[in-house]
């Protein structure tokens, strides 16, 4: 089964009543369990495509199949799929609610999913991303950039996703912090048995992380690159 399958996908933004197409005729298949890269300069539409796959942007047409479920344009994800597809955003400062303590941010999705022992799971999640349990009492602004991104990853993991979308997860971070986050993602991918779809402008990061990758330029996907050691 493929984790992601796109066929003839067009994505557009609507502003002032006018449509602006940012991705056209996109077609790709991501196999379950691989790390797939999406490279391209800023403004090429790669983030928009990722937000479509995350269910955050609903203005698209074509054929999208995620984890065996077919999506419908303009519609919200079905409940079963929602927890299975999660995303980590570029700016860890912007992706955590500034007025929620870390503990609350992690607990809420767990409670909604009917988790019986949320506090134990929160501690477990923080441990999974190498953060001490004391972080649960903090606000995001009391953490460093790398710590915030770890929290964001923990939040994304809380619903045990099968597909993790990564939107430039390390481009706002220092080099050694980036190294830590990339190591963590590789470890968690095995532990949680996930498929990763990584968007980055940094070809080196893609080369380090991915089995295969495509380049997106001006809204067009260009050739699948196998980046050595295809697994």
């Amino acid at each position: 089964m493929s984790a992601v399958h796109l066929q003839d996908v067009r994505v557009w933004h609507r502003s002032d009543g006018r449509e602006r197409t940012v991705v056209r005729e996109a077609a790709l298949t991501v196999k379950a369990g691989e790390t797939f890269g999406l490279v391209g300069p800023s403004g090429c539409g790669k983030s928009s495509l990722l937000r479509v796959l995350a269910g955050l942007h609903r203005e698209w047409s074509g054929e999208i199949c995620l984890l065996g479920q077919t999506l419908l344009p303009g519609r919200r994800f079905e409940a079963g799929l929602r927890g299975k597809v999660q995303m980590v955003f570029q700016d860890p400062y912007a992706s955590l609610h500034p007025r929620h303590r870390i503990g609350r941010a992690l607990r809420e999705p767990l409670l909604l999913a009917g988790e019986k022992r949320p506090d134990a799971r929160v501690a477990e999640l923080l441990a999974a991303v190498d953060l001490p349990a004391a972080v649960a009492d903090r606000y995001p602004h009391q953490l460093s950039g790398g710590q915030r991104q770890r929290v964001a990853i923990a939040a994304a993991l809380s619903l045990r996703p099968s597909l993790l979308l990564l939107d430039e997860p390390t481009s706002a971070l220092d080099m050694s912090v980036q190294a830590g986050i990339l190591n963590l993602l590789n470890r968690l991918k095995t532990e949680y048995d996930m498929t990763l779809l990584l968007v980055s402008h940094d070809a080196d990061v893609i080369a380090h992380m991915c089995n295969r990758a495509v380049t997106l330029r001006d809204g067009h996907l260009e050739g699948v690159i196998g980046t050595g050691g295809d697994g």
């Binding site: 912090v177 380090h208 050691g229």
Partner: peptide
């Protein structure tokens, strides 16, 4: 040495990168 080696690339694929920890 850590700063020098922690940049990811095709050569580091499949290996953990050195970090501060």
């Amino acid at each position: 040495r850590m700063l020098w080696q922690c940049r990811p690339s095709a050569a580091t694929k499949g290996r953990p990168l050195p970090t501060l920890n």
